[in-house]
């Protein structure tokens, strides 16, 4: 059964992703939309954190190794109360704490600088190990992209993960999720450098692997539970996702890896995300004042 609460939060976040990227005029919608259901599942009800105290030492950590999808983090962070929604419109603007790729020093709640691909898993291993050494309860979540795992450092970390800290301090407090959206910047992953068999590769490196639909909240939740129950070492979840999920013209289209929508495209995208037909749109906006305001704001961008 779909989780209505998570699904509703994810829908709001998708609208915010489209909104902020359109205001920014650049950025990465495809990967942000593929990963958002995973980010929402982790951030709402899963991790222990306190947006009012982002540096609380006992917080769990989420490392978005595929840092270009950080609009998904920003949307979820705003929704969780780390900062006001209005700040989303400063994305990629001079002086903003919402950098184009994650900057730990700029925004409390971002746990590491990522976006130079391939580095987040190593950092996550170190974090998990550090907590295990101190017998701390903190859990660590790391999200990788499928194009990203072409980076060699990922496989150095993959080799080390199940063995790190053993026997006394194995990193059973680490869950790694692959956002397998099948598309990278230049083209489909299979066309650039096929990664298959992905599951067998990670298994061969000693990782228990769980395969799920990365847009099914029930499956995501169960996989996260299963990973948490595996305390002997880290767990790898392969989440099959759709790049650009929720926006018809972005789905499975490499063109939308790193291009911001134009205001008119953004409004269409938002309408689709909210599941409203074109004829019903004006009536819908008359009732949903918040969305109407977002749409008005986007329309105004066109006139600038």
């Amino acid at each position: 059964m779909p989780d209505a609460r998570l699904s509703s939060i994810a829908r709001e976040c998708r609208v915010q992703i489209i909104r902020m990227l359109t205001h920014a005029g650049s950025g990465h919608p495809g990967g942000s939309l593929s990963v958002i259901d995973l980010v929402v599942s982790i951030m709402f009800g899963r991790i222990r954190h306190d947006p009012a105290r982002p540096n609380w030492p006992e917080r769990d950590r989420l490392i978005l190794s595929k840092g270009h999808a950080v609009p998904a983090m920003y949307a979820a962070m705003a929704r969780a109360g780390y900062f006001p929604d209005e700040r989303l419109l400063t994305l990629r603007k001079l002086g903003s704490s919402l950098q184009g790729h994650p900057d730990r020093t700029a925004l409390p709640g971002i746990e590491a600088a990522t976006g130079s691909l391939g580095q987040g898993l190593s950092i996550s291993l170190g974090l998990a190990l550090g907590f295990r050494l101190g017998d701390k309860p903190n859990r660590v979540y790391c999200i990788l992209g499928d194009g990203e795992i072409q980076e060699g450092q990922v496989w150095e970390a993959a080799m080390a993960g199940p063995k790190l800290g053993q026997p006394a301090h194995g990193v059973g407090n680490l869950t790694v999720i692959l956002d397998k959206n099948r598309v990278q910047l230049d083209d489909f992953v299979t066309k650039i450098l096929d990664l298959e068999p992905v599951v067998q590769k990670w298994q061969a490196f000693g990782w228990p692997v769980i395969e799920i639909d990365g847009h099914d909240f029930d499956q995501i939740g169960k996989a996260l539970d299963q990973a948490q129950a595996h305390t002997g070492g880290p767990t790898f979840i392969v989440a099959h996702t759709v790049k650009g999920k929720g926006v018809s013209f972005m789905e499975n289209n490499p063109e939308w890896h790193g291009k911001a929508p134009k205001p008119a495209e953004a409004i269409t995208a938002i309408r689709e995300l909210l599941g409203v037909s074109t004829p019903a749109w004006d009536d819908y906006l008359a009732k949903d004042r918040a969305t109407a305001a977002i749409v008005a704001e986007l329309s105004a961008l066109d006139k600038k």
Partner: peptide, 13 residues
């Protein structure tokens, strides 16, 4: 690379 990254994570913990 992994050694440096693990060190970064340990520092963050």
């Amino acid at each position: 690379q992994n050694a440096i990254g693990i060190a970064a994570g340990l520092a963050l913990a």
